[in-house]
């Protein structure tokens, strides 16, 4: 093989290996940093390790909100199943009972320890995967 062609093949091979390893590194870190979204029902039969961040969406069960000093606990429900949430800090302005909420946090002993509580800035907002028809 002539040296120029040989050199060219090497450089193509190098670029190829370089990009493949780069892309796999990126995909790997993507996969290990995903936050899965669940409704309380979807969460019921799943075993989620405590170090895995998850998002849980649903409605705040009325009468479930309890505040002790600066921490707050409440229950997220999809009207079939529910899960208890513990949070330290100020909940968003639109957080209220019977309205939609999405919580990011870690699950330990069936309690979701929240890192972040989001209430969508829209009075008609419904968390994903929940459909409620008021008329029936």
């Amino acid at each position: 093989m002539n040296p120029i062609r040989k050199k060219r093949i090497y450089s193509i091979l190098f670029v190829f290996l370089f990009s493949v390893s780069g892309i796999s590194l990126i995909l790997y870190s993507l996969n290990s940093n995903l936050d899965y979204f669940f409704t309380p029902t979807e969460l019921k039969d799943r075993n989620i390790p405590a170090d895995k961040r998850i998002k849980v969406g649903g409605m705040v069960l009325s009468g479930s909100v309890e505040r002790i000093s600066s921490s707050i606990s409440f229950v997220i429900t999809d009207y079939e199943n529910s899960i208890k949430v513990e949070y330290e800090g100020i909940v968003p302005d639109l957080f209220k009972e019977d309205s939609g909420v999405v919580v990011l946090g870690n699950l330990r002993d069936k309690i979701l320890f929240a890192e972040e509580v989001l209430a969508k800035h829209d009075e008609n907002y419904m968390p994903p995967n929940i459909e409620i028809n008021d008329d029936n």
């Binding site: 990126i26 940093n33 936050d35 899965y36 990011l104 994903p128």
Partner: peptide
């Protein structure tokens, strides 16, 4: 893409972007 393929909602947050 993930929701389309696996019918599972996910989100990608700060840890991924920091890692990259």
């Amino acid at each position: 893409i993930y929701e389309f393929l696996f019918d599972q909602k996910i989100s990608v947050g700060a840890p991924f972007y920091n890692a990259i």
